[in-house]
């Protein structure tokens, strides 16, 4: 990076894979991850006008996390009806030819998805993105002590789920 403000296309081209990965770990499924990235890219486009060169991945993480949390809050305000019978699948969804899955990753992803959103967000920003506690605190607007507590409790819950 030269330190100049990149174009939006450059950002999406260089960091799209990173964005999608973070979105997927937050959202837990491909459809929602896809939506998250779309909205995040829109905000990226707007935000580039005032972007100060610095940690691009940190800045992108903050954007995609906030999109995620906005959606979480929106869903909380309008509870979704639970139906009397659960949707059933007659056929298991067949993975695409280019999909590599291993059972272990699926288990971890599933356990991650079952964490409450606040814990999941903190864990993903720390262990998937690699942000410092201070960067995380800045991204989600909570005190550093809260970040530390959420990460710790999230990890403990994960460990329980994985046993």
């Amino acid at each position: 990076m030269t330190g100049e403000v990149p174009t939006w296309e450059e950002v999406a081209r260089t960091h799209g894979r990173f964005l999608y990965n973070v979105a997927y770990r937050l959202a837990g499924n491909d459809d929602d991850a896809y939506d998250l990235v779309q909205e995040a890219l829109l905000r990226v486009r707007k935000g580039l006008e005032t972007y100060q060169p610095g940690s691009m991945e940190g800045w992108l993480s903050r954007i995609v996390t906030n999109v995620f949390l906005d959606e979480v809050r929106r869903k909380r305000r309008r509870p979704v009806e639970v139906m009397p019978d659960d949707p059933e699948r007659l056929l298991p969804s067949t993975p695409g030819a280019d999909e590599r899955t291993d059972g272990f990753s699926d288990d971890v992803q599933s356990a991650l998805h079952h964490l409450p959103e606040e814990f999941r967000t903190a864990v993903v920003l720390c262990d998937v993105v690699g942000l410092s506690y201070e960067e995380i605190a800045d991204a989600i607007a909570v005190p550093v002590g809260t970040v530390r507590s959420r990460i710790h409790r999230g990890r403990r819950l994960l460990r329980t789920a994985l046993q």
């Binding site: 999406a12 999608y20 997927y24 770990r25 971890v108 991650l112 403990r156």
Partner: peptide
Amino acid sequence: DEVSAARRAIRILPVHAARRPL
């Protein structure tokens, strides 16, 4: 040990790629 194991499990997750164009 417990918390370290959970931390490691997330850190070694592979990058999850999109299956269709963004």
